[in-house]
Design a protein around this nucleic acid. Structure first.
Lengths: 336, 336
DNA sequence: TTGAAAGCGCTAACAT
DNA sequence: ATGTTAGCGCTTTCAA
């Protein structure tokens, strides 16, 4: 079933079919209707490989994501997909492993699939122009930006929250509740990524409040899984059982931490407050409900696509910072 | 950067390049090495549109999923993606809306992208041969099977749990704990889908235990979101505050139900036991941890891909039933 | 073992 | 307004 079959069936040339398919204006209404009917009757669907081949670019936008299991990223993917469909593009998802490099994976995907744009969902914050030059099409960093890198602002787009400031805000909230011994549960403090930025926010919030830095309250997990967060919290508690509040850099980690504290006999929030950042749906339903800074996931996804499509169409790149919103749950209270 | 550039660069014809690219044996080792080096130096990546065009079929497997936000399906997607990559194929995800039809969406995707296979992730259980005939390539129903339809077993594959039997098992566990007034939280009882099957398992488990059916213990939600499940549980409780156990047809719904009960002052499991089916990660970390039947998500994803690839390569379709595993949490106890 | 050449299905000049 | 035709980049006969 090709364009040729449709042409023969409706008694016109393939160019006319192609024109109808691409909504060209110069087709007689009568003919257009006839062709449309033929397409429908024959259940004809254009071969996008052929289309992409001749147009030397497809209508596909690629998403590169490190694991689709992160519940926060998952909901962003969902809104990205909707936005991509609405904009008339199609989406190609490529999942990479923990050690893979998203830039080279993305660049390969672009070339192989002739993508017209790329969204890097989560990723490193320290790209250099040399690395991203291989991408060849507009790309947007989604949920992060090039904080530690040397990219020219004109060469990429991003949609992100200010990780430093939001972490600062979260920790400040704990301080305002009267906490001084505040622990932090994070991935690493030198990964040039989300974890490091939120760590800095934590440090500065403490320092601005005149609270002395205490290395033993810093708990670094290997990775961001709930399992690791759970184990780490127990390790932290074994070392220090006197902290009255905990800042977890993600909701998932916060939920696991609460469970660990609970199993250790520490009541949340009576004995220990917990705050996190992300605002995934399930943390509204945990007992106690997690107090967290909600990232506007829908907005982030939609804006990433809107910006990307704009850039594809010739507009300029831009960096868009969005704000979180505090969701007051049941895990923050003044210390006893 | 095309095959022609590589040919000129390495001083051979494009046919030779193509042979190297496709691992044809009849290329002199020396030449092969030279070509491989050229490919590397030029960072050449074949244009898959052109490949797909000439081969009239791509190496892409499509996934059609209704919403990627369901945490259970998400983890299945993750394992599917890994398996597809490992098998040397690429994955195209297509997300559809609540009202869209996965079969026609899949059929369109197959034609448009010239897919070599299709995975329907979640979906209706009542396809007819006429509907699925439009799909044209091997497909596998993942996490469900054609329980209510009229498909010839030779015409499709599936990987699924026995929803009826697993629900029966869950409810039986509650009965064995001494419960008689057991409520159920589900989507619908006549949707010819997972909800209806699990409902039947619930009914039969009760009936086999000599417990009379009680319509007022059946709570139907509109959709499967946590919000709906939460509200529904409150509605159920307003109607009947004397049930001692609740069977939720999914973990997400179970977690939301526990929260609703908690907010109503009902202690889980002291006043009311809760059991669910799915076994998503977070339900291990809720307080109390959810008792649930774990679906083998990794296995389901891998097997779906394995079977699909087998069928693509000429083997026969098959229906594979997998078993759940009970994860004893903290939400089931005998009634007081 | 290698090269030349014919398409795969489509779009976009160009021609009518 | 419609048809003709030259490729897009690749694979695959067919020849050499």
């Amino acid at each position: 079933m090709t364009i040729k079959d449709v042409a023969e069936y409706s008694g016109v040339s393939i160019s006319t079919i192609s024109r109808v398919l691409n909504n060209h204006p110069d087709v007689r209404e009568e003919v257009r209707a006839k062709v449309l009917a033929a397409i429908k009757e024959l259940h004809y669907v254009p071969n996008s490989s052929a289309r992409d081949l001749v147009k030397t670019q497809s209508d596909a936008i690629g998403i590169v994501v490190r694991g689709v299991e992160n519940p926060f990223l998952t909901s962003v993917i969902s809104s990205i997909e909707k936005a991509i469909s609405n904009a008339g593009y199609t989406m190609v998802i490529h999942q990479i492993g923990t050690e893979d490099d998203e830039v080279s994976a993305g660049a390969g995907l672009v070339r192989s699939k002739r993508l017209c744009g790329l969204i890097l969902l989560g990723g490193r914050f320290d790209y250099t122009p040399g690395q991203t030059a291989t991408i060849e099409v507009p790309f947007v960093c989604c949920t992060y930006t090039n904080s530690f890198g040397s990219l020219d602002k004109k060469s990429y787009s991003s949609v992100f929250i200010d990780d430093y400031a939001e972490a600062y805000k979260a920790v400040k909230l704990l301080i305002e509740n009267g906490h001084r011994k505040i622990a932090i549960l994070l991935g690493a403090t030198d990964d040039h990524s989300i974890s490091e930025l939120r760590y800095k926010g934590y440090c500065d919030a403490l320092s601005d409040a005149g609270i002395e830095f205490d290395e033993s309250l810093i708990e670094r997990t290997q990775g961001y899984s709930m399992k690791k967060a759970y184990d780490s919290t127990k390790r932290l508690y074994a070392r220090r059982d006197d902290f009255t509040a905990l800042f977890a850099i993600s909701d998932s980690m916060g939920i696991a931490a609460i469970k660990a504290l609970h199993n250790l006999g520490v009541r949340v929030p009576d004995d220990c407050s917990v705050i996190a950042i992300d605002g995934i749906e399930v943390s509204k339903y945990t007992i106690p409900a997690l107090t967290t800074l909600i990232q506007p996931r829908k907005l982030i996804g939609h804006e990433a696509v809107r910006i990307l499509v704009d850039v594809i169409k010739g507009k300029k790149n831009c960096q868009l910072r969005v704000e979180t919103e505090l969701r007051i749950g049941e895990t923050v209270a003044p210390p006893k």
